[in-house]
């Protein structure tokens, strides 16, 4: 299992103005469901917004630019790279 290091963060910590690469999804059921929805390890994502009081997060999955909402608790299982680039969208 990938260690959370200086180079990796969990999705909840992502900022909305940057793109990140998914390194690992550490919950198999979540990984399965995300895969079925077209979001796999290695893909680039961007956090778009978060509902208040630790509500769900919206992420955009590249290259299809699909929007997915995922619960805050579940997003802690998604390990991402350090910020790749400033997103062009913001």
């Amino acid at each position: 299992m990938q260690q959370i290091t200086k180079e990796t963060v969990v999705l909840v910590k992502a900022t909305t103005d940057c793109n990140y690469r998914i390194i690992e999804i550490r919950n198999r059921l979540l990984a399965l469901k995300l895969m079925e929805m077209g979001c796999l390890e290695g893909m680039i994502i961007q956090k778009i917004s978060a509902a208040p009081f630790n509500g769900p997060l919206i992420i955009r999955v590249y290259p299809n630019e699909n929007l997915l909402a995922i619960r805050y608790e579940d997003s802690a299982d998604i390990l991402i790279s350090e910020a790749l680039s400033k997103s062009s969208d913001n």
Binding site: M37, I58, N66, L67, L68, D74
Partner: peptide, 9 residues
Amino acid sequence: KSLFLIDLP
């Protein structure tokens, strides 16, 4: 076994 994961069209 459903997880909360929704597609926003």
